[in-house]
Design a protein around this nucleic acid. Structure first.
Length: 352
DNA sequence: AATACGGGGTC
DNA sequence: GACCCAGTATT
């Protein structure tokens, strides 16, 4: 345990924040529960620089929670395309509907109530309570975890229950009752700009004198890196077919799993022939076409080699499922990044 | 308690 | 190319 009083930590951090903190993030002006909430969801496992443009576009299209709740699922997913972790978008949309239906469109203002909404866990709930409602609540995002682990020289293995429990306990102790909104922003800013994963800039840190990791020379080794497993390799074949109007056939993927809820090129199951898949699932008769250049895509937990198989459309043999649709290039829905690359690369050949 | 879930930034 | 990021839900 750190021997510096929690009050002193918060004071030093807030004084630093006033000068060096981030005060111009889009969700800070104006600051509303809806905007803070959307930002927090986008920021889960995603860096600020990546989020800013998505946030601004999302806010322009869905200006308030009622607009989001009433929006079409495809429109929401299209605004998330490229951000990743698409369950976040589905949960956000579902939560907006729940807040409109059950809370008259007003975001709940307690950690417990917020955590009943899909996609909101303890840390995100705390961030919303502190930043939108200016009420006391600890947060424990990646930045706060790193700052606190170093401050208290916590050497337990990240990811274990003991590690999480001790960090939450410390987060509660450090969180002040004054200036809760600024404190929450301040600890994230410190972690993002000074107390970084590698090469922490302790010389400029307002908490350096209180930091146990620094005193012990352990700041570069806390938190310990996670051990990683080798990523398995997978392969898949996707079907590229266009009609006589230059439209390409896309498939809305099921809600669960990779790219859940996103439109993509139809993915052929292993063990089924291209012709059979096109006839039985896509409802089209085709002739084999060119095998286009394969595209490699790295996920967190495996690597996927995508083989785009072009086919020539002969005839539409039955009405297609609603999860299948012809799309002109001008109004493509949101597509996974590697799939968009495939279509962009071959648009000339495909005459899209 | 461990794993699934994306894409991009960084060094 | 490895590692990480304003984590949560599921098993």
């Amino acid at each position: 345990m750190n021997d510096a009083p929690p009050d002193h930590i918060a004071e030093a951090l807030l004084a630093w924040f006033d000068v060096h903190g981030r005060h111009d993030l889009p969700w800070q002006h104006p600051r509303s529960a809806y905007r803070v909430w959307v930002a927090e969801i986008m920021l889960q496992q995603t860096q600020v620089a990546t989020v800013v443009d998505y946030f601004n576009a999302f806010m322009s299209r869905f200006q308030n929670i009622h607009a989001l709740a009433a929006a079409d699922s495809d429109a929401v997913m299209a605004h998330w395309a490229g951000l990743g972790y698409y369950a976040r978008a589905r949960n956000l949309h579902a939560a907006a509907k729940a807040v409109v239906a059950d809370h008259d469109g007003r975001m709940p203002d307690t950690v417990e109530a917020l955590m009943t909404l899909p996609g909101i866990g303890r840390s995100t709930a705390g961030a919303i309570v502190a930043q939108a409602f200016e009420r006391w609540a600890p947060i424990l995002d990646g930045n706060a975890k790193r700052v606190i682990a170093r401050l208290a020289a916590i050497q337990a293995t990240p990811g274990t229950a003991a590690y999480e429990k001790s960090l939450w306990r410390l987060a509660e102790q450090y969180t002040p009752h004054e200036r809760i909104t600024d404190y929450t922003q301040a600890i994230m800013d410190l972690g993002a700009t000074l107390c970084t994963r590698r090469n922490p800039r302790c010389d400029s840190c307002p908490l350096a004198s209180a930091c146990l990791a620094r005193r012990q020379g352990l700041q570069a080794r806390i938190p310990a890196p996670r051990k990683r497993k080798a990523r398995p390799q997978r392969e898949t074949v996707v079907i590229v077919v266009s009609d006589d109007r230059g439209r390409v056939l896309l498939e809305k993927r099921p809600p669960a799993g990779i790219w859940g809820g996103l439109w993509s090129l139809p993915e052929k199951p292993a063990g089924q022939s291209v012709e059979a898949f096109c006839r039985e699932y896509l409802g089209i008769a085709v002739a084999p076409g060119a095998r286009l250049a394969s595209v490699a895509h790295a996920f967190t937990h495996f690597e996927l080699l995508i083989h785009p198989q072009q086919v020539q459309l002969i005839d539409t043999v039955r009405i297609m499922e609603s999860s299948l649709q012809w799309y002109a290039r001008d109004d493509w829905p949101g597509l996974p990044a590697p799939i968009r690359r495939v279509l962009d690369t071959h648009q000339q050949v495909l005459a899209l």
